[in-house]
């Protein structure tokens, strides 16, 4: 089936198989491999992308369901090769270890920050609750989101929250 969608601001028109999920469509048909498959069952959040302003597990959405939608993936986060404040905060706060959860994590944090400029720790935890990270214990990720929203006091913040 022919679908039209916008991904990271770019318009695409493609033939998509009815059984293909959005994750595989992005990775295989558009070559956007930044979005990862961790479980294929909507449990781990590694495949999180933004669809019409909301986070979705792209493994649970069929590509044909994205017809007419606006999608943002990790490849659309940095603008003109320049890292966003959110990405810089992840870098500075060591919120990346193996990196496999990172693209999805950034997408969830992005949607949170669009809606809430100064999220509380509880709001941050809730926003990324669906994104597994097995490396960091989440703390440095939460600190990064606090930092990105201008709320991190040096080595305080979360630890005293």
């Amino acid at each position: 089936m022919k679908i039209k969608l916008t991904v990271n601001g770019k318009k695409y028109q493609r033939d998509a198989s009815e059984t293909k999920n959005l994750l595989h469509f992005l990775r295989e048909d558009l070559g956007l491999t930044g979005t990862k498959e961790g479980c294929g069952a909507g449990e781990c959040g590694a495949c999180t992308v933004i669809m019409n302003g909301k986070t979705v597990n792209s493994c649970l959405i069929l590509a044909v369901e994205a017809d007419g939608c606006e999608i943002q993936t990790i490849e659309g986060e940095a603008k003109d090769g320049k890292l966003t404040v959110l990405q810089q905060a992840f870098h500075k706060n060591h919120a990346v270890q193996c990196g496999f959860c990172t693209p999805g994590m950034i997408m969830s944090a992005r949607v949170l920050l669009e809606a809430t400029s100064k999220p509380t720790v509880e709001q941050i935890k809730e926003a990324i609750e669906g994104n597994f990270c097995r490396c960091t214990g989440y703390q440095q990720i939460i600190e990064a989101v606090q930092d990105a929203s201008g709320q991190l006091k040096k080595k305080e913040g979360l630890k005293r929250a």
Partner: peptide
């Protein structure tokens, strides 16, 4: 010193290539 990770920038941009990529 807490030097920045060598691998973080690519990982943050979705550019790091894992085997399935």
């Amino acid at each position: 010193k807490s030097m920045p990770r060598k691998d973080a920038l690519d990982k943050l941009r979705g550019l790091s290539r894992y085997i399935d990529d």
